[in-house]
Nucleic acid binder design. Structure first.
Lengths: 121, 121
DNA sequence: TGCTGAATTGATGTAATCATCATATCAGGG
DNA sequence: CCCTGATATGATGATTACATCAATTCAGCA
């Protein structure tokens, strides 16, 4: 398994989880799967507008990180979240981001990192 | 701000959030800050065992991603989570990982990605 | 068996991230 | 004012991730 490997220290496993989530295309895919429960590659292709091999590579990453599972029925491959909890995590992230960005609106440059650190690069 | 920038599509902002979290050292730092509310660089140095400049670089990443804020009092720099919700996100991730890894124990190779995909590389 | 559509893999170049080490800034005490 | 401890930045090389395009596998059908 290598990525979500329970023999590693927890903070490393956790970092790997986030690493799997750390790309906009992969977020889109996971949100599609959160909403639809299951989706074929073809469906995700039209939903995302990505080129086939590009999508496939990101799906491979998601598989490698143990975030999705796939199943071939006839000539179509269907993907599903490997764990329902993943959609929960995305939901929480969405809510928290909502709050964070709302904060940001009112205290924009506090959050911007510019004034708090003498010389933010 | 550039990283947690509300003008971008949401899935990109979300991916950036996860990108900031996608490293074991940074997870450790954030968990220290979740527990302690505030910590000096010196404290984090001893807590993590990292070399000073190495820790500093990761702190810079966390600042850049808007996940922490820092404040200098005398010659000591203190760090804090930029948003309390971040510790909430980590908490949720921890819980979910607990469940996922528990699953994994009983269905280890289902999660491993090996049997579900004909030729996992 | 040879096509065709669906999806994956491989190869390549480029860019981003990480670790290490050396150097720089910054505040306070001598 | 310079020294020291605390922290941050810069430069370098190594590794890993990303995008693009070509080639491959695989299932079903003519």
């Amino acid at each position: 398994m290598a990525v979500l490997d329970e023999r590693r220290p927890l903070y490393e496993i956790k970092a790997n989880l986030f690493k799997g989530l750390a790309h906009p295309h992969r977020i889109r895919v996971l949100e599609i799967l959160s909403a639809a429960d299951e989706a074929s590659v073809a469906e995700m292709l039209t939903a995302t507008g990505l080129e086939a091999s590009h999508l496939s590579q990101h799906l491979a990453v998601l598989r490698r990180y143990g975030l999705v599972v796939s199943e071939r029925r006839a000539s179509v491959v269907y993907y599903r979240l490997a764990h329902p909890q993943i959609s929960e995590l995305l939901r929480v992230a969405r809510v928290l981001l909502g709050e964070i960005l709302a904060d940001t609106d009112s205290q924009r440059d506090l959050v911007a990192g510019l004034p708090t650190i003498p010389d933010a690069r």
